[in-house]
Amino acid sequence: MIEPNLTEFGTVLIFILGAITFVSVGLIAASIIRPKKPNYEKLTTYESGEETIGNAWGQFNIKFYIVAIIFLLFEVEIIYLFPWAVIFGDKELIQGTDYAWAWFAITEMFIFIFILALGLAYAWRKCYLDWVKPVNRVSDFKSPIPTEAYQKYKD
């Protein structure tokens, strides 16, 4: 039998070089095949013809980012809970360690969930999850159409 001279790192290196080659060939082929007809409309920010209003440095409410980060935090929790449940359910491992593994795993997961719950309680206490409700303003616009005409569409 022929023994391979390639180590595990060599295999990883071959995969990395293959990925780089695959991406490079794809990008080069795309640049050769694609049509090259730039015009004013193609070079604008939005190809739909919409004109931009203001600059790109507009201010956004920070709560959008906070909610996104909290969402990612709890998505990461699911990523860690699933493998834990698979390993924790291994009957041979649990019985082989005289149930010490089971107690360790359950304690570890309760600590993990407690820390995440603590983070959620912190975000809740700081009111990061509260949204500002819009204020309904009555318009001072005088319409020639009587308001009774809108009543059947209101509900």
Rank of each mutant, 00 (worst) to 15 (best):
T44Y: 03
A102I: 04
T52I: 05
E41R: 14
T11H: 09
Q95H: 06
D98M: 15
S143M: 10
F104Y: 15
I106S: 11
K152E: 06
Y153G: 04
L27T: 10
A19D: 03
Q151D: 09
N5R: 10
I32S: 06
F141A: 00
F71Q: 02
E41G: 02
T52Y: 14
K142N: 11
I28T: 06
F22K: 09
E148C: 03
A102R: 00
Y65D: 01
W124A: 04
E75I: 14
K154H: 11
I2Y: 11
T21L: 08
V135G: 10
K126M: 14
A102T: 06
L129P: 00
K36T: 04
L6C: 12
F141G: 02
I111H: 03
V76R: 07
A29V: 15
I145D: 05
F112Q: 02
Q59K: 10
E108A: 03
P35V: 12
G10C: 15
L129S: 04
Q59D: 08
Q151I: 11
A29G: 09
W103P: 01
C127L: 10
Y80F: 15
I28Y: 12
G119Q: 00
G49Y: 08
A100M: 12
N55Q: 13
A123S: 12
A29C: 04
G54T: 04
E50P: 04
I69P: 00
P38A: 14
D155A: 12
G26W: 14
V76F: 05
T21S: 13
G119I: 10
F88P: 00
I14C: 07
E51D: 14
F112G: 02
E47G: 09
I70F: 00
W57N: 08
I94Q: 03
G58F: 05
I69M: 08
T107G: 09
Q59R: 11
T52S: 13
S24G: 14
L116V: 08
R34Y: 11
G18T: 14
A19N: 09
Y99F: 14
I79Y: 01
F82Y: 09
L93E: 15
A149F: 05
K36Q: 12
C127N: 12
E148I: 07
P35D: 06
K36V: 15
F141V: 07
M1I: 06
L120H: 08
L120G: 01
G96F: 02
S24Q: 13
L116P: 02
A56C: 09
D90Y: 05
G26T: 11
G89F: 04
